[in-house]
Amino acid sequence: MRIVVVSAGLSVPSSTRLLGDRLAAVAAPAATAPEPGPADVEVIELRDLAVAIAHTFTSGFPGRALSDAFEAVAGADGLIVVTPVFSASYSGLFKSFFDALGVTDPDALAGKPVLIAATGGTARHSLVLDHALRPLFSHLRAVVVPTGVYAASEDWGAEGLDGRIERAAGELAALMAGLSTARPLPRRDSFEDVTPFEERLAALRPAG
C-alpha cells in the first residue's frame, strides 16, 4: 500500500504540509490493518516543482522531477491533496500541477481514492472543499472520500481538528483497503446466459 501526499504549501514551515503529514500519519497504519506495518508514504512538495510545472505548459513536456511526481501520483493506492486557500479557492500552483498531470496522463486519477484538505487564515473559507476541490477531483474521475478537512489558523491546537483528521483518514484507508481487495466482475464472452427482461419481470409478478 502506498499513500502520496501532494502539498501546495509555500512557506517553510508550512501549515499545509503539517496538515498533510497529520492526515498521512493516521491513514498509513489504518490502510494496512490488520496487517503489521503502515503503508508507505511519499510527500510531493509543489513549491519545489513550480518552475518545472510552468515549463510544461510552454514546452509540452514535463522534466524529470515532474515526471517522477506524476508517476508517483499515478502509482499511489491513495492520495492526500492539501492546498492553501488563495482568493477563496485552491492555489494556482495546486491547480496547475493537476492540469499538467491531466494533459500528460488523463487517466492518472481515474478510480483513485483522494482525500481533499485545505488550510486558510479564517474558517469562512472552509467551503472551498465542496465548492472547488471536490468538483475538480470529481472531474478528474477520482473517488473523493466523504470527509474533507479544512484547518483555519484558530483550529490548530483547538478541539475538533483531530476528530476530523481521524474520520477523513479512516475513510481514505477504508476505501484503499476496499479497492485493493475488490475482485473484477466475471467476464461474459456471450449473452447466452442473460435472462430476457420479460422473463425477469414475469418472475416478479405474484402467482395466480
Rank of each mutant, 00 (worst) to 15 (best):
M1C: 11
R2C: 07
V4F: 01
V6T: 00
V6C: 03
S7C: 07
S7A: 11
S11N: 15
P13S: 12
S14N: 09
R17F: 02
L19Q: 05
A25R: 13
A31H: 02
A31W: 00
T32N: 12
E35F: 12
P36M: 13
P38E: 05
D40V: 13
E42G: 10
V43G: 02
I44H: 04
E45W: 10
L46Y: 05
L49H: 06
L49W: 00
L49Q: 03
A50E: 10
T56M: 14
T56R: 15
F57Q: 10
S59E: 13
S59D: 14
S59F: 11
S59N: 12
G60K: 04
L66Q: 01
A69N: 06
F70L: 07
V73F: 01
A76Q: 00
D77L: 10
D77N: 15
I80D: 03
I80G: 00
V81N: 03
V82H: 00
V82L: 02
V82S: 03
T83M: 03
P84F: 05
V85P: 02
V85F: 05
F86W: 15
S87W: 12
A88N: 13
A88F: 14
Y90P: 01
Y90F: 08
Y90L: 03
L93N: 07
F94P: 00
F94N: 02
K95C: 06
F98T: 04
V103M: 13
A108C: 04
L109E: 03
A110M: 10
P113I: 07
P113D: 11
L115W: 01
I116D: 04
A117G: 01
T119F: 06
G121I: 07
R124P: 05
R124E: 03
R124C: 04
S126N: 15
L127A: 12
H131F: 10
H131P: 01
A132E: 09
L133W: 02
R134P: 01
F137L: 04
H139S: 14
H139K: 13
H139C: 13
V143I: 15
V145C: 07
P146F: 09
T147F: 06
V149K: 08
D155K: 08
D155L: 01
G157F: 09
G157N: 12
L161P: 05
D162Y: 11
G163C: 08
R164F: 05
I165K: 06
E166F: 06
R167N: 11
A168Y: 02
A168F: 04
A169H: 08
E171P: 04
A177E: 00
G178R: 09
G178N: 04
A182Q: 10
L185G: 12
R187V: 15
R188N: 13
R188G: 12
E192A: 15
D193C: 09
D193I: 09
D193P: 03
T195Y: 11
P196D: 05
F197Q: 14
E198H: 15
E198Y: 15
L201Y: 13
L201M: 15
R205A: 07
P206N: 02
A207M: 12
A207G: 11
G208V: 14
